[in-house]
Write a protein that binds this DNA or RNA. Structure first.
Lengths: 274, 274
DNA sequence: GAGTGGTCTAGACCACCCT
DNA sequence: GGGTGGTCTAGACCACTCA
């Protein structure tokens, strides 16, 4: 059985050539230098390059992309890898694929972006939408987690947690009130609240093994006069609540957030696909 | 080159054996008969069976599932197929996978399911959560689209649209009020409202080129006494509004829906990843 | 260092679209 | 009927985890 001796072996380990179509269209491109660390997976590089070409307008909305076989030849990768890349594009709503016909650039394109399914900090989302994010801390105190809170975070009842209360701003206007709880053992030794800086997300990222990878979010409609503070509160007391627990590797819960978005001040978009 | 003569060829076409672990746990199960039409893909059957076993409690939350190699042997499929199945489970938040360690049943479990990012009909979501979906039409009438409506659907102002008003039920209880608009030219010749049947989604699916592939959804918190009808309305008038336009192939808008979910009666979950 | 998931390849056949 | 995407297999090597 089994022919093919020298098969297997993915892309040569040393191949640090950035994403680029091999015999492709333009002449030798400047090759986007990969910063440090491990190179992204092949299918990610291919996908990134296809994104670049889409942005560059190589295929207009509705236009058909090259066939999988053609892309496979262009990038010198297997068709399976091309297919994985195409899946990424589809998931981001950049292309549509029709069985027996081909893959097409979607008419939407840039419009999307603020998708809820992608785990990003609120401030990052605001920035990406072209606004100036801001943050106003109201308090940052250590407390003892009550039973309910401990359960959400998967820590023993009575554990210490850092409780935060913040207002999230966009172009100087309050768009949300955020209540966060972070288990004390997630924080580094000698931590003081000042270390948090602007984004808790960025802070957890720096921790290495506390980097949030997933969040399980629940959505609710809430009306209350008890949420928020000062005159930033909306008159009607109407909020969209994003109640989420963030998980790092190992399935470790690193933060529980309840973000009350003031209805009408923040755009919530979701691209739904199947 | 190329050994293996009788390779390739997926599962024997005739194999209508429902999803079941081959040498697996329980003794020969009654094999859920697949109704009509094409059998689901192998990886879907495997995935469905794993879901069944998860529901049955074969692996408790946090517990490790068998390795990919083991599952590959159990189901007599390639590891690649097992991996595709696992991806489905992950996307639905039922399992988490840790590189070098294994796949684990999530601590969330059943709660999830209603993942917003997956485009499914509300009735399908209800059914998948183990409840009995229902639908009560209040009206189905042809109207002239106003400018705003026409723009959302990408049809000329003044076009005819079918306007629907429905209540969505779960186990006999109203969980949402739905207002839908479908361009008349999406409907087949000789259409009468009775053709709609239970799910508009299923109806559009039958149309071939009207099958919804994407939806761009917006979320809002709404409080109003004008939504809904009869005594099914909640006292506080609080709703979570899912305002979405469905697109079929070619980027054609085929339906605009505003679904007002009664706060507290429907679980909205999103698995956010990066 | 053994075990487990992550990535990638080459090849095969099927289902669907279009001309 | 030819072309295109959809599914599946077998095999290989790599990266990570954990005892």
């Amino acid at each position: 059985m089994v022919a093919r001796a020298a098969a297997g072996a993915a892309a040569e380990p040393g191949s640090d050539l950035g994403p680029e179509p091999v015999p492709g269209p333009g002449p030798g491109s400047p090759a986007g230098v990969s910063p440090i660390g491990a190179a992204p997976a092949l299918h990610v590089r291919v996908s990134d390059d296809l994104k670049r070409r889409l942005r560059a307008g190589e295929w207009q909305p509705g236009e058909r992309l090259p066939t999988e076989a053609e892309l496979s030849a262009q990038y010198q990768v297997s068709r399976a890898t091309v297919r994985t890349s195409m899946k990424l594009l589809q998931a981001q709503g950049l292309t549509q694929t029709r069985h027996g016909s081909g893959s097409y650039a979607t008419p939407f394109g840039d419009a999307i972006r603020a998708g809820l399914q992608e785990l990003r900090s609120v401030t990052a989302t605001i920035a990406e939408q072209g606004h100036e994010p801001g943050m106003a801390y109201r308090s940052a105190t250590f407390r003892t987690a009550d039973d309910d809170e401990a359960q959400r975070l998967g820590v023993p009842p009575g554990s210490r947690v850092l409780a935060l209360e913040r207002a999230i701003l966009s172009d100087g206007q309050v768009v949300a009130f955020s209540y966060d709880w972070i288990p004390a053992d997630v924080l580094p030794d000698g931590f003081v609240p000042e270390d948090l800086g602007g984004s808790t997300f960025a802070f957890l990222d720096r921790g290495g093994d506390t980097r949030p990878l997933h969040a399980v979010a629940e959505l609710h409609s809430v009306r209350s006069s008890q949420i928020g503070w000062d005159d930033a509160r909306p008159a009607d007391g109407l909020y969209l609540l994003l109640d989420q627990v963030h998980f790092a590797s190992q399935g470790r819960a690193v933060m529980h957030s309840r973000i009350y978005f003031i209805e009408g001040r923040f755009q919530f978009m979701i691209l739904r696909t199947r």
